[in-house]
Every structure is written in C-alpha cells, then in structure tokens.
Amino acid sequence: MGDNLTDQPIIQVRNMSKYFDEFEALRDVTLDVHRSEVLCLIGPSGSGKSTLLRCLNFLEAYDGGEVLLEGELIGWKSAGASPRKALSGEALRRQRQHIGMVFQQFNLWPHLTALENVAEALIHVKGLGKKQAHEKARAALAKVNLSDKEKNYPANLSGGQQQRVAIARAIAMEPSVMLFDEPTSALDPELVGEVLSVMKEMANEGMTMVVVTHEMGFAAHVADRVAFLDSGRLVTCVPPAEIFGQVPEDPRVRAFLQTYRERNVV
C-alpha cells in the first residue's frame, strides 16, 4: 500500500460538511481514497456513512468543503463562491460516468430485462451501437456469473441476482471508482455470499471501492482501510487490523464492535 500513498489520491474529501435543514449530518470530514484501494465505511446507523457516500457522487449536495475526483471538484462549479452554484446537468452527468454506484435496494428498472438494464447507459450515455453495447453488457453479466439470466425481468430474479445485475450495470460503464451503499443489507443471509464474492473479485482485480457495510467480515478481510463514523464525524480511518485485531482505543469504536462481538459476527 505504500506505493499508492505516493500517488495522488483518486478521491479527496476536504473538510466536508452536510446539513439537512438544521441537522448536521456530516461535520468536517477529511478523507482520501487511493487508487485500487478498498475503503469500508462503518458506524452505527444514523452516523452519516450513507450520506457521506451519496455526497461523493453528488446525489446529496454537500454544503461545505470539497470532494475531488482525480483533482476535479465534484458537483459545484467552484468551491469558493458563496452561495455555491451547482454544475450543469450535462457536466454532472459527465462526472458521474466515472463513479459507479450500487444501492441497498438494487434500484433496477423493473420494466427492462437484465441485459437491457446493463446496456441502457452504454447505448445512451456512452453512445455505443446496440450490438456492441449488448456484447459489453453480456461480458459484464458474465463477470457477475449471470450469463444465463440476461432475458429475465427483475421480478423473476432473486435478491442476490438482482444486486449482481446492479453491479454489472455499474461496472459495464468502466468507472474509476465504485460506491456501494449497504449492498447486502436487503438480502437473505444465504444470498449475501454470492454478492460479497463478486465484490471480493472486483477488489482483487484492482477496482477502487468505497463500501458502506455492516458485514464486518468483509471489512476485516477485504478492506485496505476502515473508516469509522459516529454522529457525522470521522472518528478514525485505519487498516482493518487496527480495529478488528486488537482492542480499539476509541471508546465509540469499542462499543460499536462490542455489539457485533456479542453476536459472534467477528
């Protein structure tokens, strides 16, 4: 990991804050994500980890600070202006093409088949021909082991299969970063494994990933670093061994992990 640190981080979060009306959802978060790194965001529910993730691709407009993707400010025209002006739809779309996202509730388009779900953006965002797009979509579906399901509508896929289609939809766009928002939380326990193993494979291939998760096993074994959030603040961001391998120093982290230990998850 030492080499990565010398590169420019692919994502830089600088003193970011986010308010929902009066409520301070994120306060002064500063964080880097390096190329090919897997960063897991953990913390109690309501701690702001999903909000942080959604600010990275501007699904939520952050209020203060900056988010940079390969040095480029995400979402806003300039960080200095007050009030800030959001980028045009076109410019934002261009930025988002480089950031893949996978949701807790899959969010597949139910009226399109698995193949059409994956091919849609290839045709209408990347501008590929239908044949080429379908070829690429098939390759993406093969990667998530769903080659045989391309004609199925989402209603006829299991939750795990739907989530894998959603992953294929994102990776087909060849993003430079992938964001995962609790990708396994809506799944039956026996279906969690198939999704996690696809994610593990992506990590091995060098994909940069930011993952909000409750799967402490995944965080412990796949993540390069684990960030712990509490009440909208970044408490710590360290290699997993420092959190899972020993008794963490910070009492909030200790208390959080204790609830998992009690259930023998870790």
């Binding site: 691709n57 699904l59 739809g89 076109e90 779309r93 261009r94 988002r96 093409q97 950031i99 893949g100 996202m101 949701f103 509730q105 969010n107 597949l108 388009w109 139910p110 009226h111 849609e120 953006a121 209408h124 965002v125 959603a166 939809r169 994102a170 766009m173």
Partner: peptide
C-alpha cells in the same frame, strides 16, 4: 415511480430527457 430508480439512472449518467422517456414513462 420509486425515487431510487431515478437516482440509479442519474448515477450512470442518463440525461433527464432519457430518464423521462425510458425509465419513467414506460412504468
């Protein structure tokens, strides 16, 4: 139409017009 589907469409960079015609209208 569930909001998440539209977010997913924005995340892959589909234009608002395309989202309307391809994601919202058919459903």
């Amino acid at each position: 139409i569930p909001k998440g589907q539209i977010e997913a469409a924005r995340c892959v960079g589909l234009s608002e017009r395309r989202i309307l015609m391809r994601i919202i209208l058919p459903q």
